[in-house]
Design a protein around this nucleic acid. Structure first.
Lengths: 225, 225
DNA sequence: TCCTGTTATTAACATTTCATTAACGCATAA
DNA sequence: TTATGCGTTAATGAAATGTTAATAACAGGA
């Protein structure tokens, strides 16, 4: 379980960020000013900090300095409205830290968090490193599909295709979209190639009765769970 | 034993610093340019870095960035002739780093090193001197691989590669990442060179049945334990 | 400087892997 | 029915990798 300390005074933004992170499977502690953030930091242990820069009581940079001078090297991501001069940014990045200028997309924030956790080699076994598919488990990191004790190593393309289908289950993914995203172009032969892969995935997935890879004639494919 | 990586091109200054640190009981590895420093970083493990900023081949900041983006949070002290703007300094300090303007006294340098090590004290024990690999033991310090009574002396590259694989066992390490971190660039021939090393490591590791160095076609390699 | 041993790289050839293409049969829709 | 789309298996060929040997680069010593 990954613990995140979020210090943000804006109620709306804070709620949105917290909510999204919770949905991603992270454990979030939210504080409304620097002082409360500092107290929270001292009371339990976190894996990563998200600090707003402009905060009441104690600004984000000062809080970060206190955390650092307490000997803690945990990664910090600053959320800031004003853009910073280039060399200051560079300084932060050297420290293993990062910063995001508001407004930012949650997608972007989550990507950065994941990147940092990966860099820190945190064994984030509970996060989106796998997708469960019925009684199967798709291991994105190791590019393999496990079913009980048995596991099937997938090729890069098989993985890409299955991931694409599994990310949007019970939804038609158009052939056109698959081809353009995975193959980059869309001609007759690549279309046939896709069919070969679909056929193979069906074979891999046939252990689970209530997992069907259905084709929608003339449109695309749907992975039903 | 505290390992220090010192990257300094000035022969005189480098010698003086190294000598003083040795007398203080530290273990020092000295390199003459950024590129060599980066290689050294990848080949063994250090507790702290002293980087000159102005270096041939690759400057100190760039080297620090590479170290950080390799996921390493070890403290870095920059040795610099030019003084830096205030907010840049602040950025470095947030990162647990520090900087000294030349000329500096050895006394001052040693005080800063001690201060940083004290701050890190909690984590000081975390620097691994060896990695166990099934029934093998990888001795980072002596750069050798032991299996029962027998031991194999590894070359620097063999060590760097095996270390990289062993640090993240059961996980695919992309060819691309290996080449860019260990070799610094990624062309066809270096790729073949990597294959030669993989082949050799397999030979070294074939005593232990349940230790497999698997290749993932088109992606990279995985060391399974 | 010239050796000499060590190590990394390149060459050369064998082998494996995998996406694509081919081939044939069935299903679907007009 | 007929044309087209899809399912499946097998054949093909290009690219990636495995392996061994030859060469190049390099450091250290005589």
């Amino acid at each position: 379980m990954i613990n995140i300390l979020l210090v943000e005074d804006d109620e709306t933004l804070g709620f949105v960020v917290e909510d999204n992170l919770l949905q991603e499977g992270y454990c979030v502690t939210r504080k409304k000013d620097g002082k409360l953030g500092w107290e929270a930091f001292n009371q339990s242990s976190f894996d990563i900090c998200l600090l707003d820069v402009m905060l009441p009581e104690m600004d984000g940079f000062t809080l970060a300095e206190k955390i650092r001078s307490a000997g803690n090297l945990m990664p910090i991501i600053f959320l800031t409205a004003k853009s910073l001069p280039e060399d200051r940014i560079r300084g932060f990045k050297l420290g293993g830290d990062d910063y995001l200028t508001k407004p930012f997309s949650m997608e972007e924030l989550i990507l950065r968090i994941e990147a940092i956790l990966r860099r820190m080699d945190v064994k984030a076994t509970a996060s989106p490193l796998g997708i469960s598919l019925g009684s199967y488990q798709l291991d994105l990191k190791n590019q393999r599909l496990t079913y009980g004790a048995t596991c099937i190593d997938l090729t890069a393309r098989e993985m890409g295709l299955l991931k694409m289908l599994a990310e949007r289950p019970n939804e038609i993914i158009p052939r056109e979209e698959i081809l353009s995203r995975l193959w980059g172009k869309n001609d007759y032969f690549l279309g046939r190639s896709l069919d070969v892969f679909i056929s193979r995935l069906r074979k891999y997935l046939n252990k689970d009765e209530n997992l069907r890879l259905v084709s929608v004639h003339g449109v695309g494919f749907r992975l039903e769970v």
